[in-house]
Design a protein around this nucleic acid. Structure first.
Lengths: 229, 229
DNA sequence: TGCGTCCGGGACGTAGGACGTCCTGCGGGT
DNA sequence: ACCCGCAGGACGTCCTACGTCCCGGACGCA
């Protein structure tokens, strides 16, 4: 008989997760069990599961089993990075869009952060800024910690996602152009505004930070070509 | 001669796209050709391609071929919808986060829209508002048209994505609670502010719009359970 | 008794072949 | 000139077999 079931295997597997109330981390049925449950061959089941894995909906551990995933947005880093790189002009335009979205989110949030940040958190932010010239990941941690108190998990994931994509594509902009000093100054100014609980100053400091980032992109755009592979 | 290649097949396929400079819409090598190029079996190739399709990186047309995709973010609607539904409390919290992000983006953008919207566009927005009580999709089109002039493709995709996810999960909030009149009033107020080129009024109108949406979510949270399937 | 090693089973990973389904384009019939 | 049917290419599904990895229990040694 034909394999027309109306709903794709992927959707049926998702429905199955919801029916059973499987929480992230819970074990999924094995491939063989899914074959019976869905009435499909192992091959079809595997292809559907692979697609779900790409979306972060399930997590596969070789030799152990398949588990419900967290659907964290960072699984789509490759997708966004691909889209950015595919854009005409080496994706400079897409990169600019990306940074602009980050700016929108962060300048919109920093105001409420200024009113709620505890001294403990401020100290942690200071520590991250101090290590920023050595540790490349300190910048990411800084922005993540900044908005952790907002209680908005989605925003955290988005900002992390955009950071990852930017730093994956950034090397194609040309020479490293390390201006660590300026970056540190910018971040320090943000922390200072937060310590003073001055929302407007924090917003302005954040705008300055992104002004530098966008300037870097604009310089890359002016250049002819970033030396293709 | 195990299959250890270091890089996954997916990554190698993506690399292949970049090497050949394939633009979105361009035809990909066939499955058989990919088998030779990557030195893998058809099964493995198919699984990798399926994963890329889930990410929107390739597009498959049965009986025709495989093509480079646009990696539009709306392919991850199922992923986000899954994540929202998986959250504890029926995902009410995640839904609130989602709307909050939309609010951040839209209130941040509406200001610059107010300064650039042409009369033609205003008329189109009016038409969409007028049809909003009949056409369910008019709301989506309204928000898309609003920010089209910003020239930020990523923002358009994100707002569309969030709209889709919200309206896919929204039915689980409980009874429809059609307050079309209020919604229309809110949108009309936004257009009025744009027509007056009053950025601050537009921002405020947008905030009011989202205040209503968040109120709906809060009412749903207060309710015990949204009647499980 | 306690611990480290070995081995078996379970589950995912890869491979290769066969057949069905869908689309396109070409050629012949009307 | 138009329509229909057919062949070929490409994706969709299924089946079988074997490899790889992880875990836990059995075994042997100290």
């Amino acid at each position: 008989m034909p394999t027309r079931d109306g709903a794709s295997l992927q959707e049926r597997i998702i429905a199955l997760i919801h029916e059973r109330g499987l929480a992230p981390g819970a074990p999924m049925p094995t491939e063989v069990q899914l074959m019976d449950l869905l009435g499909a061959s192992r091959n079809s089941v595997r292809e559907a599961v692979r697609a779900l894995r790409a979306l972060g909906i399930v997590e596969i551990r070789h030799g152990h089993g398949t588990f419900v995933g967290h659907a964290s947005l960072d699984v789509l880093t490759p997708s966004l990075a691909f889209q950015v790189r595919s854009g005409q002009g080496g994706g400079i335009r897409a990169l600019h869009d990306l940074v602009e979205v980050r700016e929108l989110l962060e300048t919109g949030l920093i105001g409420q952060v200024a009113r709620t940040t505890s001294p403990t958190r401020l100290a942690a932010l200071d520590a991250l800024v101090n290590g920023m010239d050595r540790d490349r990941g300190a910048d990411r941690a800084f922005h993540a910690l900044l908005y952790e108190s907002c209680g908005n998990e989605l925003v955290l994931q988005l900002i992390g996602l955009f950071w990852d994509v930017y730093h994956e594509v950034e090397p194609t902009l040309g020479p490293p152009e390390e201006r660590t000093a300026e970056i540190v100054v910018n971040h320090r100014r943000i922390v200072a505004a937060l310590r003073a609980r001055d929302a407007e100053a924090a917003r302005e400091a954040m705008r300055l930070h992104f002004r530098d980032v966008k300037a870097r992109i604009a310089r890359a755009k002016a250049r002819p070509l970033p030396a293709p592979t």
